[in-house]
Design a binder for these strands. Structure first.
Length: 157
DNA sequence: GCCAACGTTGGC
DNA sequence: GCCAACGTTGGC
């Protein structure tokens, strides 16, 4: 399948683009996703090398902080099996763990943080999922053209 | 901190 | 399988 593109949300207080860039191998497991639609995107559609817009949510301003890429096949999410984890799921077992993750690798931090407001005003992004009212999904598909436009903006061109 | 929008749960 | 109640998300 051709390379696909995604937007992945994270709260920068918990895990930011800078945190990702400081991880060993600049790679981290995207664990803790507990929404079926978001899980399905990871489990069923993501491929190694897919492009990721790294989105900072629940902060001011919210927006896209950088670029990452999918760095692993889908794997079972071990936090679902860990009673100490905030993402623990009592229904999950090692044999039957419904939750998945992929590893995500740092590509670049944007020279210019691209705010939501800016995305709203940019021609060509009218249908971008993250701009839709009430959209809370933490993993969203992005079109190649949207990805290209956001990257251009983030690089400061 | 507010609250609209949405997903999930559970009684029936 | 419906749907009201509840919890969560996330921008403001």
């Amino acid at each position: 399948m051709a390379k696909q593109f995604w937007l992945m949300k994270t709260e920068p207080d918990t895990f930011s683009i800078d945190d990702l860039s400081k991880r060993p191998g600049q790679t981290e497991s995207w664990d803790g996703v507990r929404n079926y639609q978001a899980r399905n995107y990871m489990r069923d559609q993501m491929k190694i090398g897919d492009g990721v817009l790294f989105y900072h949510s629940s902060c001011s301003p919210a927006g896209i902080a950088g670029e990452a890429k999918v760095a692993s096949h889908p794997l079972p999410d071990p936090t679902a099996l860990n009673p100490q984890s905030p993402y623990f799921d009592a229904k999950a077992t090692p044999e039957k763990n419904p939750w998945a993750l992929v590893k995500v690798a740092f590509v670049q931090k944007f020279k210019r943080f691209v705010t939501l407001d800016e995305l709203r005003t940019l021609p060509g992004l009218e249908n971008m999922v993250v701009l839709k009212k009430g959209m809370r999904l933490s993993i969203q598909p992005v079109t190649p053209e949207e990805f290209r436009l956001v990257l251009k903006l983030g690089k400061g061109k």
